[in-house]
Design a binder for these strands. Structure first.
Ligand code: ZN
Ligand code: ZN
Ligand code: ZN
Ligand code: ZN
Lengths: 144, 144
DNA sequence: TCTCAAATGTTACGGTATAACAAGGTGATT
DNA sequence: AATCACCTTGTTATACCGTAACATTTGAGA
């Protein structure tokens, strides 16, 4: 199964980083994985409540924050949502493409273009931190 | 005065576009202009309430939406905020740099780098729409 | 003047996120 | 084992962000 495989990789990844993928965090990760695209915190919260009876917002937000910090998820600010990172392990900055019509998500490597951006920003005195780029558009299927 | 000059330019800009910069919208624009960096909707709302006694969220959100659509402001999703566009008139896509420490904002031209990004995204089947890029980092003053 | 469409006012609500403190678990030190 | 420090999770409450829906006003053109 795809999910189990990802979880296993995530486990190794966390161990290498010296952080703990606890049962709760793993459960949240599985819930996010069960979606195909962007997921919202309160969707995850609702799912979590189905599985364990009760859960409050901080529970899910803390888990999501951890998973983002660990590099397993990315936050999509423009949509108040989260997506699974499909480049765990390969140190990277993501170029995340979101289809505005269907919600499909694709993640490419933003490293080359961020080099250019860092140089341009440097000219204005800005030191750009590690981050992802998000772009919205339409995927191939939705353009037909 | 800097602000008056900008307002005047905004006025011309709106007239060219065939949209109306009403008194309310102008007032909101002035409030946003009075800040140096990113401004939040509820900050504007509070200011507006000081000036006219009462105002409700939809009032300010509608004005902000209009100003964004007119190209006079940009929305900064990552911060739930808005900034003034300093390239009104020059048709452009902005590369917006936000200092995470002090909130200072700089806007450059993102057109060249977006050409590269469009090509890269096209390889994955995505047609990316007109948009701005936001990057966070630290400005020169905050790095000292 | 009349009419219609756009803009604004008003109320109410729903979605997003965090503060603050309590309680539980884990592993190292003694 | 008992203690302690630290991280994780639970719990309550609240603050912040944004919009739906409908009423009312305004203003440009017939
Ligand atoms: Zn990634
Ligand atoms: Zn699509
Ligand atoms: Zn701009
Ligand atoms: Zn700064």
């Amino acid at each position: 199964m795809e999910i189990a495989c990802f979880i296993e990789a995530a486990d190794r990844h966390c161990q290498q980083q010296g952080v703990k993928l606890t049962a709760l965090r793993r459960q949240v990760l599985e819930l996010v994985l069960s979606y195909s695209g962007v997921v919202k915190a309160y969707q995850v919260l609702a799912d979590l409540q189905k599985q364990r009876g009760i859960a409050a917002p901080p529970t899910v937000y803390r888990a999501l924050d951890f998973l983002v910090a660990a590099g397993l998820l990315h936050k999509v600010d423009a949509l108040n949502g989260y997506i699974v990172c499909h480049h765990v392990g390969c140190s990277h900055e993501g170029l995340i493409l979101v289809c505005g019509d269907c919600g499909r998500v694709e993640e490419l490597d933003a490293t080359p273009v961020l080099d250019v951006l860092r140089q341009q920003a440097g000219g204005a005195g800005f030191a750009i931190s590690q981050q992802n780029l998000m772009l919205t558009g339409r995927c191939e299927a939705c353009r037909t």
